[in-house]
Amino acid sequence: MNAVQDDDAPLLAVEGLEKRYGRRVGCTQVDFRLWPGEVLGVVGESGSGKTTVLNCVAGRLAPDAGRVLYTDRTGAARDVHGVSEPERRMLMRTDWAFVHQNARDGLRMAVSAGANVGEPLMAVGARHYADIRAAAGDWLEKTEIELGRIDDPPTTFSGGMQQRLQIARALVAGPRLVFMDEPTGGLDVSVQARLLDLLRGLVTELGLAAVVVTHDLAVARLLSHRLLVMRQGRVVETGLTDQVLDDPQHPYTQLLVSSVLQP
């Protein structure tokens, strides 16, 4: 179930992606493909364009040039920014998930944890209260949130718990593709470690494809199979994660790798 299939059609194909903000380049000439079960890390420093790429690929931001092609469950290739907004929102609801850096951006803070996790199910037609609640409970356990907190609102959760709740909400409806924007950013180190481990386990167990944006190379090494290194809106290097980090070719990648502090 979690073996990467050879010779399958890619789940996501990004071609010549470009986004400009006035005269400033957000990202340009970005090409990559993603297969089921793969995790692609996008690393770079602030201003590298990695978040722009993520938002364009996830359908949240319209690019100025290029295409994002997604192969849906029927095998049909859909141009993410060419389809109508209702279709795109439907894809975003059923096939994709987005994990924000700040958990509050991905949760409804005024509503209970159980309702937060149950909402994606209700959004695709689940109408049996006990089943929805049971599924929400399963996912709270999977993300190591105490089951007794199911009726508490996320405002009463710690930062790490909020992030884990966001992940549960993102994954409950069984998406095929997950986009993560600095999923461990802003959290305490010990909390980060626990969260990374959880993400790694879930991605493997569920055979998810994922695009993970991070500035933290250790996170990239732990989570991703392949890496895209970005600088000033361009991809400067790409390859297997361990190869890019252990044998960086591009001067900027070498700089990044050598700059990481080793405690």
């Binding site: 907004e85 209702p86 929102r89 439907m90 609801r93 409804r108 509503v111 209970s112 159980g114 309702a115 149950g118 909402e119 994606p120 199910l121 209700m122 959004a123 695709v124 109408r127 209260y129 929805i132 609640r133 199911i150 009726d151």
Partner: peptide
């Protein structure tokens, strides 16, 4: 407006879910 246009009504059932939970 978008929710109505796109028949995106999951949120409505969230309200009912909260009622039952509470």
């Amino acid at each position: 407006r978008k929710m109505h246009a796109l028949e995106d009504y999951g949120l409505m059932h969230v309200k009912l879910y909260e009622d039952i939970a509470r």
